[in-house]
Design a binder for these strands. Sequence first.
DNA 1: TAGATTGTTAATCGATTAACAATC
DNA 2: TAGATTGTTAATCGATTAACAATC
Lengths: 210, 210
Amino acid sequence: MKGQPVISKATIDRLPLYFRTLRMVQDEGIDIISSDELGRRLSITPEQIRKDLAAFGQFGKKGVGYYVNELKHRVGEILGLDHHWNIAIVGIGHLGAALANYQNFIALGFNLVALFDQDPKVVGLTVNHLPVSHISEFPAIAQKRNINIAILAVPAVFAQEAADRIIASGVSGIWNFAPVKLQIPEGIHIVNEDLSVGLSSLSYHLTRNL
Amino acid sequence: MKGQPVISKATIDRLPLYFRTLRMVQDEGIDIISSDELGRRLSITPEQIRKDLAAFGQFGKKGVGYYVNELKHRVGEILGLDHHWNIAIVGIGHLGAALANYQNFIALGFNLVALFDQDPKVVGLTVNHLPVSHISEFPAIAQKRNINIAILAVPAVFAQEAADRIIASGVSGIWNFAPVKLQIPEGIHIVNEDLSVGLSSLSYHLTRNL
DNA sequence: TAGATTGTTAATCGATTAACAATC
DNA sequence: TAGATTGTTAATCGATTAACAATC
C-alpha cells in the first residue's frame, strides 16, 4: 500500500514473460539485450517493453541495452518472486495433483508446503512427497507453515466455501481454477485461471475461419 | 473470414462467462434475466454486458430483459460451441493427463478424441478411456478423427517442434500450455494458457500489500 | 399507463504506438 | 565521433462508462 503510481494490469501480466525470457537469454550466455531483441522473442513491440519497464525505473543504458542479469533480478523483485511465497493446494483431484507436480512453480521460487482435500479417500495420500491433509486442518497448518497463497482446484460447487475457509485462516492470495466468480472481501487478492475461456475463444476464432 | 466488424478480445473473453452463468441461471429455473442481474453475478457492469451482446445482434426485450434459454443458445452459437470440435492432447504428463480428465470440456461440447506422447513408457497407456498414441501417428490420426484443436502440454523445449507437427497435419487451433512463445504461421489460431503469469501477478500484488 | 430495461450514441478513460531528445 | 538504443512526451487508438431515447 505504498503511494506508488498505478501500473496497468496489462503491464503486470507482461512482466512474467520478460522474466522468463531474460532467464532463457541468460542461459544462452547473453549478457546484454536490447528492447528490440526482447520484443522480437516475445512478439511485443520494443516501445511497449521500454514503457513497461520505465514504469518501475531506469534499468537500461542508452545506446547499449539492458544487462540481462541485472534486469532479470529487478523484474523478479518487482514481481515479488524473491519472497519465496509458501503455497498450498486445496483440492487434490486430477488438476490439483497435476499442479502439485508442476515444476515451473519451483523454478519461480514458490514453495509448495501443503495439500488439502475433503475426500477421506484422498487424505493421507502422498503427492509429490507431500501428504494430503484434510481441509479441516487448513487453519492450523496455514498458520504453522505460513501459507501465503492457496491454489483452489476444487469443483465449482465447493469453491466458495473453500475460499471462505482459506480467507478466514488469514491467507490473502487465491489462485482460483474453479469456474465460478467468487465473492471475496476487500484486501484479498484473487486471480482467476479460467480454463474454459481459452478453449472457447479458440472455438470462436475457428468458427469464423471455416 | 466473413466481413464482420472486429470484436474486441475483451468482449470475446467475456462471452464464455456469460454462457456459463446463463447455464447456471437456467439450472436454477430462471427464464428471464436482466443485464443488471447477470452483471451482479459476474461483477461486470450491465452496460458492459449490453454492449458486448449488442455487437452480435439484438437479443433482449426492452423493459423485460433476456430470455435465458434463447440467449444461452445464441451465445453458444457465437462461440461456436455448437460445432462439437474434436480435440487432442499432445503431451500426457501430469498436466496433460489432468486435462484428459477435465469434465468441463465435455460440458462445453468438445470431444476429446486422441492423446499423444513421445515417451514409449506412456504410449499405450489408457487415460480416461482413451489410448495414448505415439506422436508420430499424429498426422494419420488427426485426419481420421478430424481433429480441430490440439492441446499442447509438452515441456517447453519440445513445444515448438510439436506445434510444427500439429500445424503440418492441418490442425489450425492450438491451446498452448507450454511456457514459450511459439512461432506460428498465418491462419493458425493459438491461445496461450500461461500458468506462470497468474501466479506471478498474485505475487506482485501480495508484495505491495505487506 | 407507469415502470423497467434494452440498444445505442457520446464522453471518458486507459493503453498502445509513434516520435524524438538524451546519451552511452 | 557516429551509430545505437534508451526513456519520455505527444498522438492515436481502443475499450469502458455514462446517458438516454426507444419500447416492452
